[in-house]
């Protein structure tokens, strides 16, 4: 049988969800037996591959790079899952939204804050421009299932992956969907 092709991706988040992914400890060896992890921030692969069965996406859509990657992921994955609260709801990443215009926020952080050198970082093509508002993943692409949690506990991630590998969607009832 063909190995399942699983990917994980990292948008606007703290990588805590991926830390929790690593917390699955020895089950990762089992996962490696039954699935190929074809793209992940913890693997050195440059471009998002084609023909992916399921992609777990950590993080909210906060800047133009995030948006571009999200669209690419959707085009190349059979299933896309919001992985963790930032992808699910925007969460901490979206806490800038009530403050309004991102330019003002950048000024507040980089110019007005006393311990900075007074310049907003700028490097076209390297530092991606912020989107006007941070968005949950399902606001920019179709999402097939949600794995909430900040971060989702390792056993919740494992249960989700086990379901996916059996050809069903992750549990979406009870404690499996608690935010926070």
């Amino acid at each position: 049988m063909k190995q399942a092709r699983i990917a994980t991706a990292w948008l606007g988040g703290c990588s805590g969800c991926h830390m929790s992914f690593l917390d699955m400890d020895e089950w990762l060896f089992e996962l490696a037996e039954i699935a190929d992890v074809v793209y992940s921030p913890i693997a050195d692969i440059k471009d998002f591959p084609t023909d992916v069965d399921a992609t777990l996406v950590e993080g909210a859509v906060a800047n133009e790079d995030n948006l571009e990657l999200a669209l690419d992921i959707r085009a190349k994955s059979r299933l896309v899952l919001s992985f963790g609260d930032c992808a699910v709801s925007g969460n901490v990443t979206a806490m800038r939204n009530p403050l309004g215009d991102p330019q003002q926020i950048l000024e507040r952080v980089y110019v007005e804050a006393p311990d900075r050198d007074g310049r907003i970082p700028e490097a076209p093509g390297i530092v991606p421009p912020l989107l006007p508002k941070v968005l949950a993943l399902h606001k920019v692409i179709r999402v097939d299932a949600f794995i909430p949690g900040c971060p989702p506990p390792a056993d919740r991630i494992q249960a989700a992956l086990e379901a996916l590998l059996e050809g069903s969607l992750p549990p979406n009832r009870g404690e499996a969907i608690r935010w926070g």
């Binding site: 709801s89 009530p98 949950a136 949600f146 969907i177 608690r178």
Partner: peptide, 16 residues
């Protein structure tokens, strides 16, 4: 939210 099965929010967040 857990009781009612809310795993995500379909509406746009108002971020007031």
């Amino acid at each position: 939210a857990v009781f009612c099965g809310m795993d995500h929010v379909r509406y746009d967040s108002q971020a007031p």
